[in-house]
Amino acid sequence: MSIEMLVLAVEDVLVSHVRKERCDTVRTLVQMYSANNQTGFERTHEDAFLEDCSTRSLEVSEQAVRLLMQAQTDGVRLGLVSRMSSRMLCALLDQAVGPDWVDWFNIVATADALSPGQSDADLFDLILRTADVPADRAILVDACPRALSVAQRLGMGTVTVLDNGALGADPAVSMACETRSLAWPQFRELEEALTQREAPLVHERRATVC
């Protein structure tokens, strides 16, 4: 069985850090602001996020980009998921990567696709249904343990990005790295490890815009 879709989270995976006076994770920065722009108050928070990001230096993970390109070369479709609004995401990646980033992905799903009360499970399910890909033929790379757990329950293969920037998984996959300088595995190595698993992994911790 081969993998048909690779999904990367933006927060702390594709964009690893945002720097100003100090170095913050993207997840930390996003938590300071609302991810929903349905009201004027929340739109104000969204504007504040954009202004804050414009003053920061953004770090794009070269290893994440390399993994994306390897998967694309193998004919795997690419998805991007974010807990930010579409406006926040576009501003962040336009600054970090440039406006062509949208051409990398077949599907981009953001918090704008969620109704009140919906969760990561609904966002991942939306990606899978839109792409018409079975959950067990998709891989999620994320840094959020809760999101990884949700994806596992859906049947997706999952790999976590550890706090040091390395990829980690259960001992059967053996991809944990000790330092940020160690390279992530090749996509084919990742695919082979995940498609051969007998049980869900247990972890530590032009595009369609949904």
Rank of each mutant, 00 (worst) to 15 (best):
8 L>W: 12
128 L>G: 00
80 L>R: 01
55 T>N: 13
41 F>Q: 10
175 M>Y: 05
86 S>L: 14
190 L>K: 04
187 F>Q: 01
179 T>G: 02
5 M>K: 00
112 D>I: 03
120 D>C: 04
174 S>W: 11
132 D>Y: 05
119 S>P: 03
37 N>R: 14
69 M>Y: 11
124 F>Q: 00
158 T>F: 05
63 Q>M: 10
95 Q>E: 10
29 L>Q: 09
39 T>P: 11
154 L>V: 02
140 L>P: 00
119 S>M: 14
194 L>Y: 04
123 L>M: 10
8 L>N: 01
154 L>T: 01
104 W>V: 11
125 D>M: 10
62 E>Y: 05
63 Q>K: 13
70 Q>T: 00
121 A>P: 00
175 M>V: 07
154 L>A: 01
77 R>E: 04
129 R>S: 13
53 C>T: 13
5 M>Q: 04
66 R>Q: 07
7 V>R: 00
168 G>C: 04
63 Q>A: 04
50 L>V: 12
9 A>E: 13
177 C>V: 08
187 F>D: 07
68 L>N: 00
128 L>F: 06
47 D>S: 14
62 E>I: 04
167 L>E: 06
176 A>N: 14
188 R>C: 11
156 M>T: 02
78 L>I: 01
147 A>K: 11
187 F>G: 04
63 Q>F: 03
95 Q>Y: 05
110 T>D: 02
182 L>R: 06
82 S>E: 08
96 A>V: 07
62 E>C: 07
181 S>I: 07
61 S>G: 05
13 V>D: 15
55 T>Y: 09
11 E>S: 14
38 Q>W: 15
210 C>E: 10
153 R>N: 05
84 M>S: 06
29 L>H: 09
29 L>F: 07
11 E>M: 00
157 G>R: 11
74 D>G: 06
40 G>P: 11
136 D>G: 02
204 E>T: 10
5 M>W: 03
48 A>Q: 15
136 D>M: 13
88 M>F: 03
48 A>P: 03
23 C>Q: 08
24 D>I: 08
74 D>S: 09
127 I>L: 04
59 E>W: 11
111 A>M: 09
37 N>F: 09
185 P>L: 00
96 A>S: 10
106 N>Q: 12
87 R>Y: 07
41 F>G: 11
15 V>C: 06
153 R>D: 07
51 E>W: 08
25 T>D: 07
13 V>F: 09
14 L>H: 03
112 D>N: 09
17 H>D: 09
125 D>N: 15
86 S>V: 14
42 E>Q: 13
204 E>I: 05
197 R>E: 15
203 H>G: 03
166 A>R: 03
180 R>V: 08
124 F>T: 00
181 S>Y: 13
167 L>P: 01
106 N>D: 11
28 T>F: 13
